[in-house]
Simulated assay, not measured.
Amino acid sequence: MSWIQSMLRPHLRSFTPYASARRSMSGGSIWLNANESPFGRAYSVSTADLNRYPDFQNQALNQAYADYAGVQLKQVMSHRGSDESIELLIRTFCEPGRDQILICPPTYGMYAISAAINHNETITIPLQQKNWQLDLAGIEAALADPNNSVKVVFICNPSNPLGNQLRQQDIERVVALCAGKALVVVDEAYIEFVDAPATTTMARYLDQYDNLVVMRTLSKAFGLAGIRVGFTLANQAIVDALLPVLAPYPLPDVSVQIARQALTLDERLVTRQNTIEIVAEREALLIALPTFPWVRSVVPSVTNFILLQVENANALMQHCQDAGILLRNQSAQLGLSDCVRITVGSPEENERLLEVLASFSSAA
């Protein structure tokens, strides 16, 4: 062991980082591996004030998102994507080496990664594989176990990497079970792709539950993954607890400028139009994908991606990569043997994808 290794915190000496889409794969001409929007658009920014530090919390941006999400300004905090929210929630509420988070895999990998970095154990209560819904009995038992000290429960809804929607009454049940003991964080990165998101989001219940947190992002439906803007929605007491832990200047000024433009009514209409097109493309793929003989099953999706189980995920990944198409292998996730996640691309990208998949089918 080198002296640098010996200086590391012991629990990080064999730490495995999150394998992001850009970190784990490169090259290709069609990127369908990161759940990004296929639609980009141009924004104008001013560089006149780049010699100055940006706002700690830009009130105009936060108000614009509060209006969009249907919440109050005091219930909004902006920061660098949802990943920073995950980290902040764990660092603020979980004592290293003592408290735990609870997750329901298969789910987004950064919950457990952020907990591990902060030296917090992750308790896993897998989704029920018969319907990919929450195991309420398992969650209740874990919360009631006197040996556990769960402080934060992360629920991804709509689910990533599955793409399905969890039952709202089940999420409310978890919030009730955690009342006075733990936060329940609902990750709604893909909420814009569901039917009637305004009547589906848990943000409607922020005034009702003081332990509820909702995470949002501009990276998916808004097509702004490159500016790294996310939001934490919660009651004021939670926001006030998080703010002292947040970095002094969390968002660059250019990111704030673009985000504010994206949240204007005209730009929101463009986002909505793009979302409708993505959903239409998703539905077409959901019809086409099961027709390939090597597809074992396809998970119904309400997001901008589709998860399918195939006969040989590694072979399919290599076949597509050789054709310049990058997909995401999810086989390492609990219960997802030989599963591949496909981001819904543009009509042209999806057409090319199906051509490549058809050639794999004929060779299988």
Rank of each mutant, 00 (worst) to 15 (best):
29 S>M: 14
195 D>H: 10
327 L>G: 12
129 Q>F: 06
57 Q>L: 06
297 S>T: 14
145 D>Y: 10
281 E>M: 11
357 L>Y: 11
307 L>S: 14
103 I>K: 01
316 L>K: 02
30 I>T: 10
208 Q>A: 15
282 R>P: 00
301 S>C: 01
8 L>Q: 14
6 S>W: 15
97 G>N: 11
245 V>W: 04
231 F>T: 01
216 R>E: 04
246 L>D: 00
288 A>F: 05
205 Y>G: 01
7 M>A: 13
178 C>K: 07
281 E>V: 05
279 V>W: 01
245 V>A: 13
217 T>K: 02
186 V>K: 05
309 Q>I: 04
333 Q>I: 00
159 S>A: 12
311 E>F: 04
221 A>D: 12
252 P>C: 02
163 G>A: 02
40 G>T: 14
215 M>V: 13
353 L>G: 11
144 A>T: 10
356 V>I: 15
158 P>N: 04
168 Q>H: 10
181 K>N: 11
353 L>K: 12
298 V>M: 11
150 V>F: 05
104 C>V: 03
11 H>R: 08
345 G>F: 08
207 D>A: 15
280 A>E: 15
332 A>T: 05
50 L>P: 01
233 L>F: 07
135 D>W: 12
35 N>A: 11
30 I>C: 08
287 I>N: 08
289 L>W: 12
131 N>T: 11
303 T>P: 00
96 P>D: 08
309 Q>S: 13
167 R>S: 07
171 I>R: 11
231 F>G: 09
150 V>K: 08
114 S>Y: 06
255 S>L: 00
96 P>T: 11
189 A>P: 00
18 Y>Q: 08
330 Q>E: 11
212 L>E: 09
188 E>A: 09
349 E>P: 10
291 T>Q: 15
332 A>R: 02
159 S>V: 09
288 A>K: 14
233 L>S: 09
